[in-house]
Computed example of a mutant assay.
Amino acid sequence: MANGSTLPRRALGRQLRKLRDRAGLTQTAASRVAEISPQSYGRIEDGRQTKVTDLGLNALANAYKATDEERQLLLDLAREIRIATASGGSWWRGYTDAIASGFDHYLSLEESASWVTSWQTTVIPGLLQTREYRRAIDWSLNPNAATEDVERKLDVITRRQDLLDQPGFRFEALLSEAVIRYQIGGAAVMADQLQHLIERTELSGVEIRIVPFAEADPVGLLAKSFVLISFPPLSSSRLQEPPVAYTELLTGDLYMERGPELDRYAQEAERIRHVAWSESASRDAMLRVHKELK
């Protein structure tokens, strides 16, 4: 699986932050050393797309009193970013008009992932949605949207789902029973969506498990929906990037990458797995609801 430029950018940002903290310098001071704006330097440490040169990295390494090994790691990561960038832009660059502001960052993380765990309490996760199911959601959110705009958004969903066929990619969907019982788009649309879920369980890298209504422990319902994204080692440096927890809020998206926050989401996912039905029992439940809708 290709990591793209997202993972080496994140790794470079983490290494620079570590060295800067050790040197006791502020981001503003570091930006002066690299001869870029404080905003641009902040984006580098955040792992966002910003041009960084070997000259600037060498200047930062000098200011941070980096060892030869630390300096070489910075330069190796920068080279990996350039190689990944030169190989071509990510597929969603052609769909910027159909992607919500800021969601390209999520797509870049998702594309770089080796394992995604999605806990959902109300809707099917995007990687498993049918076009008709997603169309019903989009029309509900924006009933005045032009048909061509909605179709462009649906194309993005379809392209995202190519990940499920990538070797080495694993998708774990943990769903509240409400997700498979809400009749979004009507009975026919939901029946087709459930049939799609049942077919997806036949893929080796897809696991779908349901938390039943009868479960007395409200675990997961209190945490609300979230996604955990884990990554493979970088191809050249073999650095292991830490996971990211993501949650979609009404007023914006929230990404958590710090240890304590991340640990809480990882622990919550484990608790949800503990109360969820097995894969086979979850499949049986989807078959039952599918039969009720036909």
Rank of each mutant, 00 (worst) to 15 (best):
D263K: 11
A2G: 12
R273F: 03
W115M: 08
V189R: 05
T85G: 00
E207L: 11
I198K: 01
S5Q: 08
Q120S: 14
Y64A: 14
L221H: 09
T96K: 15
R93E: 14
L25R: 13
D217T: 10
D162R: 15
G89I: 03
A146G: 12
P143D: 11
R152E: 15
I157S: 12
A29P: 01
V156N: 08
R131W: 07
V33C: 02
R20I: 04
I184M: 10
D68E: 15
S37F: 02
A11R: 07
R200P: 01
L250Q: 11
E215I: 02
A98Y: 03
Q120I: 01
R283H: 12
R238Y: 09
S176C: 03
Q267C: 08
V211R: 04
D155V: 05
V52R: 02
E69W: 03
A281F: 00
A188H: 09
G205M: 07
L249A: 15
A187S: 13
D263T: 14
A188V: 11
T96F: 11
Q129F: 07
E177T: 01
Q166W: 06
H196D: 04
N144V: 05
V33W: 00
E177W: 01
Q240T: 09
R82H: 05
L75W: 06
A173N: 07
E279T: 13
T147Y: 04
E111L: 06
R93F: 10
D192T: 10
R82T: 05
W119Q: 11
A34K: 00
S31L: 02
A84N: 13
W115E: 10
A266I: 14
S108T: 03
R48H: 11
S5H: 03
E80I: 01
R71Y: 02
K294Q: 15
K51D: 14
P218D: 07
Q15Y: 00
A214C: 05
Q267K: 13
H274V: 06
V289C: 01
R20K: 12
S90P: 07
A145T: 08
